[in-house]
Design a protein around this nucleic acid. Structure first.
Ligand SMILES: [Mn+2]
Ligand SMILES: [Mn+2]
Ligand SMILES: [Zn+2]
Ligand SMILES: [Zn+2]
Lengths: 156, 156
DNA sequence: CGTCTTCTTTTGACTGAGTCAAATCAACGG
DNA sequence: CCGTTGATTTGACTCAGTCAAAAGAAGACG
C-alpha cells in the first residue's frame, strides 16, 4: 500500500527519497496540516529531516500535482494529498479545524462570476467559515448564544 | 464628501485622527491595497505616518466594520471600504490584480456546503482565480495559448 | 479656554512563515 | 561500482505582521 508512493514519485519524474516518503506518510494520516506539524511528525520516522527539507519536499509534491496547498486566511499554509477533484473546505473560526466539502459540480471552475470583468477564470476557490460542532458546544457552555444561520441549499 | 469620514469614525466610537483620515482617503481611491502600499500613499498627505500606525488604523477600521480585510493566497492582506454586501473577488494569477464580483444572493452565507459536517456556517468566501484581460494578451503575445475555460452560469 | 483622562501613535524590538544560495549528500542510470 | 544530477542540509535572510512601553493628541468636562 505504501510502496505506491514510489511509483507516484517516479512517474512524476521525482526521485524516491526518505524525506519525501516521510512527508507523504504524514499527509496520508493527517489531511490539512501545516509545514511545521509535518516536520514534527515526519521526524518520528526520519529524525534528521530539516525544516527546509520539508518545504522543499512540499514544493516538489505540489509542483508535481501529488499534493495540494491551501492558505486559509489567518494561518499558515496547509497541505493535503486529495488532489484533482476540485473540492472545497470548511474552516472553524474557533479552533482552525478544516473539513473537506465535496464539490457538487466536480470540475473547476464550478462557479462562474456574475460578471467576470474580462478575466479568464480557471478556478473557483470556496471556503466556508463557521464553527465546528465542538466549538459550538464550547461556546454555548460559556454563555454565548449558538448562532445557527443556514442559507438555502445550493451545494458547492 | 470627505467630512463623512468624521461621522463614520465617531459613530463607531473611534476618535478622528489624521492617520485614520489619510488611510481612509487612500482606501477610497484604491480598493484592494496592501498595508505597505497604503502607508506609502498615506505618506503623501501625512508624511510622518509610521507603518505600525497603518496596521493600528487598519485593525481599528476592520474591527469597527468600516473596512474589510481579505487575504488571497500567496500575497499580503488587502483592504477595502466596500463592506457589508458579501461580495466576492476575482484574482489574476499573472499580476495579482483584484476585481470585485457582486454576489447574486447578497447575504452571507450565499452558498451552503453539500455536507456541512456539523459546522454552523456563517460565510462562504469565494475567490475566482484566473487571468485578467491584460495578462491574457501578454501571455498570447509570448506564444502561450489562451485558455478560455468557462463553466456554466451559476452566478456568485 | 484650559485641564485631565483616555485613546492613538510612535518607536523599537521581536515573531512566524517562508525563501534563497552554497556546500554536502545520495538516487539511480550506466 | 561510478559519475552525474537532483535532493537535502546548513545558515543567512526577507517579508508581513505583532507586541509593549513611552510620547502625543482628541475631546469631555468644568
Ligand atoms: Mn481538503
Ligand atoms: Mn472587494
Ligand atoms: Zn472548532
Ligand atoms: Zn493580470
Amino acid at each position: 500500500m505504501e510502496t505506491a508512493w514510489d511509483d507516484q514519485l517516479r512517474t512524476a519524474g521525482l526521485r524516491v527519497t526518505r524525506p519525501r516518503l516521510s512527508v507523504l506518510g504524514v499527509l496520508a494520516e493527517h489531511p490539512h496540516v501545516d509545514a511545521d506539524t509535518i516536520a514534527t511528525a515526519a521526524r518520528a520516522v526520519h529524525p534528521s529531516i530539516s525544516p527546509q527539507a520539508v518545504y522543499g519536499v512540499l514544493k516538489a509534491l505540489t509542483g508535481a500535482g501529488l499534493a495540494r496547498r491551501i492558505e486559509p486566511a489567518g494561518g499558515p499554509a496547509l497541505y493535503e494529498l486529495r488532489v484533482g477533484d476540485n473540492h472545497h473546505h470548511l474552516v472553524c473560526r474557533g479552533c482552525g479545524t478544516v473539513a473537506d466539502v465535496d464539490c457538487v459540480v466536480g470540475q473547476a471552475p464550478c462557479l462562474t462570476p456574475s460578471d467576470a470583468a474580462g478575466f479568464a477564470v480557471d478556478e473557483a476557490e470556496v471556503v466556508f467559515w463557521g464553527l465546528c460542532a465542538d466549538c459550538q458546544v464550547r461556546r454555548s457552555q460559556h454563555g454565548y448564544g449558538s448562532n445557527t444561520a443556514i442559507g438555502e441549499g445550493v451545494g458547492a
